[in-house]
Structure formats: C-alpha cells, structure tokens
Design a protein around this nucleic acid. Structure first.
Lengths: 199, 199
DNA sequence: TCTCAAACCAAACAAGTGCTTGGTAGGCTA
DNA sequence: TAGCCTACCAAGCACTTGTTTGGTTTGAGA
C-alpha cells in the first residue's frame, strides 16, 4: 500500500488545476485561474511546475497508470466472460465517482492534446483501451454470451463512449451511487430496454 | 419550401466557422483561424458579423430550430410508441450525418456558452429535449413496450448522451452509413447485447 | 542566532486575442 | 459616367495569455 498520508502543496495545486481543467477545459483555463483558486499569484505556480502543460501531463499520466492497472487485473482474472465485461463496466463508473475531474479532462481534451508529441501516449492508451475491450467482447462472443450478429467494433465504440459520458452529469454523493448507475446501465446494455425477447 | 439556391458568402463563412468551432472548440478558435480558412483578413469578418459570438449564435439557433421541428413532427405523428422511439433515435444519427459540426458544437460548447444570458435558450432547448424524450419513454412504458423496472430519468440520460456522442467518430461517406449505425444502436438499446433472454 | 530551502510576491515580457477604424477595388444600376 | 453597394485590406488598439526574473517571507534545523 502506497503511503499517501499528507497531501503536499504540489498535490493540492494539481488537484485544484484538475478541477478547473475539467470544468472549463484545458486551454480555457488560465494559469491565473488556477493561482486565484489556490490563493497565490500566477507566477508562483512556476515554483512548483515547469509549465501549464506539465500540470495536465502529470494529471493524465498518473490517472491512466492507475486505470490501466485495473484493466489489466480484470483481463488477468479468472472470471467468466460475462463477469469480466460487467467488472470493466463497473470500473468505469467507480472511476467516474472517484476521479471525476481526470475522466472529464480525458474526455474533453485528449483529442486536442494528443496532437502534440508530448502527449503521444494518449493515442497509445487509446489503442490499449480498444484492445482491452475488444478482447473482452471477443471472449464474450466465443463463450456464447453475446449475440452473433453484433458488429463488435461498433459495440466497442458504443460502450467506450457511453460508459464514460456519464461524467457529464454524475455527481458523487447525489441520489444515485455509482453502483446504482452501473446496475441500470448494465441492465440496459446486456438486456435492452424492451420487455422480454428471445431473438 | 425555402429558397436556398445559391450559398451566400455569409453562409459560406458560417459553414467554415462551424467546422472550426466543431474541431477546436468555440473559444479555442480565433477569428484569425476563421479568416485564414476563408482566405481573408480577420477584420473583414466584421463586415458580415457583429462578433464571434453572433456567429455561433446563428449557427446554433438555426440548427436547433430545424432539429426541434423534427422532434415535434415525431411527437405529433400517429406512430406507435416503439416506432416513435425508433424514429427519434434515427433522427439523431441522420442529424449527425447531415449537420455534424453543429452537433459537435452543441455537444462540446453548449454547457460553457449557456452560462451567458445571450445563450440562455440553450438551457431551454435542453429542457425541451428532455420533455420530448421523457414523453416518448412514458408512452413506451404505458404501452407495455418498455420494462417496468427502468429508471426512466436514467434511461433518458443514457439515450441522450449516447445517441449524440457518435459525432466524435462518425464520418459521412465512410464504411458505415448513418442508417447502419442506427440499426446497430437500436438493436443494442432495445434488445441488449446478450443472447436471448426473457426477464 | 544564523542558515537555508520552500513557498510566494511584484512586476514585467512577448505573443496572441477580439475588435475598430478608415480606406479601396470592382461590379451593378440609373 | 456617376453613384452606390458589397466585399475586402491595412493597421492598429486594449486586453489577456503563458512565462520569466529577482526579490521577500516564513519556519525548521544547526
């Protein structure tokens, strides 16, 4: 277990920045916004960080390292195909609950940031994510859990988009827990919204 | 039928601006970006438009007027409950196909723009959209088409988010037509991805 | 008490931002 | 051919942007 006793000033600034990046977008957040929220002057940020870019960089790298570690655990587990898919879906909603700002930044700014060399790892992580999901879906197909007439690439895109987009409205501590949301979403995804059918 | 024979220079500039707004975001697109893409100087844009804001304004208003007109047609139609839902879903993918940039702008910038009085109609349209979908879903429930154990508010949010998010990857003229995508999505939404079940 | 490092301030910088102003080229019409 | 209108240019203004620089405060250890 990693020691994470006291939050350093640096970590605190990163957390403040992440919140603003998530709320307003990376480019639309100024270093003065961040400094104001932290109660310091903008120039003082450069005592802690090289640049505004390096702030998002740190935020995204640590987030993705954590997330993909958990994806790997699911892949390596001995769960059956259907349970693996369920776990992967639940992981998304857990992550939205625990790391909302980071998810939002990834959703909103990854495409734009990915154009710069410094953030080329975003594209690699994107591929990695696709491989994880396609593996899970192919296992589901092979196990006879999924319908044969599905376009798996399309299913992947739908799932990828839909499990993360809830970050736009989900608020931790609200009426619905992340587990509630995951339950409903899994029900819709796996069985659809219409009454019993057997096609 | 409105005459729309020749595209005026003004319309052309709006189309160019919409493409850039969709690609880079409203605030991250400069008037010089737009002017460059149009082959003129930035100041010349102000012969056609009051401000950069009024450009998005025109783009969003005309887009929403068209879209909600079609929603109303569906509501007023004499289709059965399930067919109405299908039509509404298909309308989304048709719109992504025909008005991709406008959909992207709405997806990416509506939240941020809606904070200003000038764009308060965005929040109203948002409510209107929710009413349309909730009406359709309630009809589906009353008609016995939808399962009784669904949280309709949640179902609405999922549908709303997922029918529009395809704008991130769908490209007109690609392998998949908007009808292909709609077919698959409807299949997933209505019947789920798992093999026949009757719960 | 002295030292030192972490954290911050105060002021400025060059580049980029939306927008304004006064003027011009060219075509259409009276 | 005179007047006018649409579309544009050239240059600049006030402001905001990320970042830099040199100095100051504060608290803990020697």
């Amino acid at each position: 277990m990693p020691e994470q006793s006291t939050e350093s000033r640096r970590d605190e600034l990163l957390r403040i920045a992440a919140g603003l990046f998530a709320e307003k977008g990376f480019k639309n957040t100024t270093v003065r916004d961040i400094a104001d929220a932290a109660g310091i002057l903008s120039g003082s940020l450069y005592h802690h960080f090289d640049s505004k870019e390096s702030m998002v960089d740190e935020i995204l790298v640590s987030f993705q390292t954590e997330l993909f570690g958990k994806y790997d655990e699911i892949l390596a587990s001995d769960l059956d195909a259907r349970s693996k898919i369920e776990r992967a879906v639940r992981l998304s909603f857990e992550t939205i609950d625990a790391r909302g700002p980071e998810v939002a930044i990834f959703q909103n700014d990854a495409d734009h940031l990915g154009k710069f060399e410094r953030f080329s790892y975003l594209a690699e992580r994107n591929n990695q994510s696709r491989e994880v999901w396609m593996t899970l879906l192919r296992e589901g197909l092979a196990a006879g859990v999924l319908r044969q007439d599905l376009d798996l690439q399309l299913v992947y895109r739908f799932i990828r988009d839909t499990v993360w987009v809830a970050v736009r409205w989900y608020r931790p501590g609200g009426d619905l827990s992340h587990d509630d949301v995951a339950d409903q979403y899994l029900h819709i995804l796996l069985e659809g919204i219409t009454v019993g059918n057997s096609s």
